[in-house]
Design a protein around this nucleic acid. Structure first.
Lengths: 255, 255
DNA sequence: GAAAGAGTTCCATGATATGGGACCTGTGTT
DNA sequence: AACACAGGTCCCATATCATGGAACTCTTTC
């Protein structure tokens, strides 16, 4: 099972590029040589080619970072949608296994933005469904994003929707540290009586939380034992998704 | 001046990739073949290699889009900083030519976030300086982002800081359409008496405005004739920056 | 049902990537 | 100062690997 027939040079260059993109800090020439085991001369030539095409660039110290083409891509308004595309298989799987509604959200400013939803296994349309101004402290997704600092904590008093919504800052802090401890968040009757949700974090290379995935449904189904089952499903699936984003277990970030 | 000595295959693959990343929408196999003039077989092989490495992916219809590695990169919290890195030469040049403070901002949520600043030609530290809760309608940067829909228009009545700040929605609308007409925005004594600024938009591949660059200083220097000079400088420099992001003149987007 | 279109696979050919080693350059060591 | 060493680039003969034409498959169109 050697390299597929076809394009050795391109495969090697791509491997270099992947290494550079997936690590969270610039890579030195030597570390790349060591990791891929290629000849120095070959590595040097390939990197020069990648540099010429703006796929990598060198920082002041000569280490390699993702190049301008990546910035160009990241500046596209649609870049986040493509994250949804990447997550699609995971979301679909969660939807099939749980038979509930699944959401993928990212923080934007002080708000939680939904970028994908699976509802009885159909992925919703193309436009972002911005959270209809729901108080994020009452949602499982919001709690996850708050818990790991992906979203700035709300200032002032908390907006509540039901008697179960977190009442004040002290209660919220308690809830969030519980979320961090367990690794997932839950929201029962907090946004609306009869509505329940469980959510887990998606992490990036450097361990920071960049998104959250939730499963939600009526509390007739989302309750007691069901919650544990859903949480386990979510945690294992989001762990896989995080790995796709280059996250390595055990790098849980500082926050 | 044929292809540099070294790596034909990698250069060609990179050219393909650049084409895919810099275009606004998925590219069909044939359009890529036509544009680069490579043999179908070669193109096919190279694309397969890129696909294998997650640098490109096919959508349902078989067209090519940037692959998961790009999403991985875009999900990094630092992705926007890298935009600043890309813009650095441009900002520095503006700083040297204008001898005033230069800022690069992007919209995030409902706010304007500064991601780079040049002050008497020094680039500021690493942390984002979030706009200290300044009402964006009183700033040149804010006006640019509002004018082309990069930032959702504020709801309710406008916060004012001086007698020159836009007073109401009607005035703001008038100002914004003027901004669109001219291609740049100005703010004089609107945020603080004695403070003046000029700003111009940075556009992405699809023509949408993704960022803004401003020059600001005391109205003793930023005034009358000086403003026109600064605006011309800004417009020509941001046009160059937009081109680096893949924007082509004449695609000014729909908004 | 034929024909055009889109894309992949095959294969002989030689152009092109390869890696060893020379070479350069900057940095710390005696 | 002279020296050693690591990090990196350049050069070049070799043969491996990419190349493009053509054959082939699958799908869409008329």
């Amino acid at each position: 099972m050697p390299t597929q027939v076809g394009s050795q040079a391109v495969d090697r260059a791509s491997a270099l590029l992947a290494l550079i993109v997936e690590s969270d800090r610039p890579r030195s020439f030597t570390s790349l040589v060591d990791e891929l085991g290629l000849a120095k001369s070959t590595t040097s030539r390939l990197l020069q080619a990648l540099e010429r095409s703006r796929l990598v660039q060198r920082d002041q110290s000569g280490s390699f970072r993702p190049g301008a083409l990546f910035s160009i891509y990241a500046a596209r308004p649609s870049a986040l949608h493509d994250l949804a595309e990447l997550a699609r298989p995971t979301l679909t799987r969660i939807g099939e296994l749980s038979e509930e509604t699944v959401n993928l959200s990212v923080p934007r400013g002080n708000e939680v933005v939904q970028i994908a939803q699976i509802d009885s296994r159909y992925l919703l349309g193309s436009t972002d469904w911005v959270g209809v101004d729901v108080p994020a402290t009452c949602t499982a997704l919001g709690k996850v994003l708050y818990a790991w600092g992906a979203l700035p904590l709300p200032r002032g008093s908390l907006e509540r929707r039901t008697a179960h919504s977190p009442a004040d800052r002290a209660e919220l802090d308690r809830v969030l540290s519980e979320v961090r401890r367990r690794g997932w968040a839950v929201s029962l009757d907090e946004l609306e009586v009869g509505l329940g949700a469980v959510a887990a974090p998606v992490r990036s290379v450097d361990g920071s939380v960049v998104a959250a995935v939730s499963v939600s449904g009526p509390t007739t189904r989302v309750n007691g034992h069901g919650i544990t089952r859903l949480a386990e499903l979510l945690v294992s699936e989001t762990r896989g998704l995080s790995a796709q984003l280059g996250h390595h277990q055990g790098r849980e970030g500082v926050a």
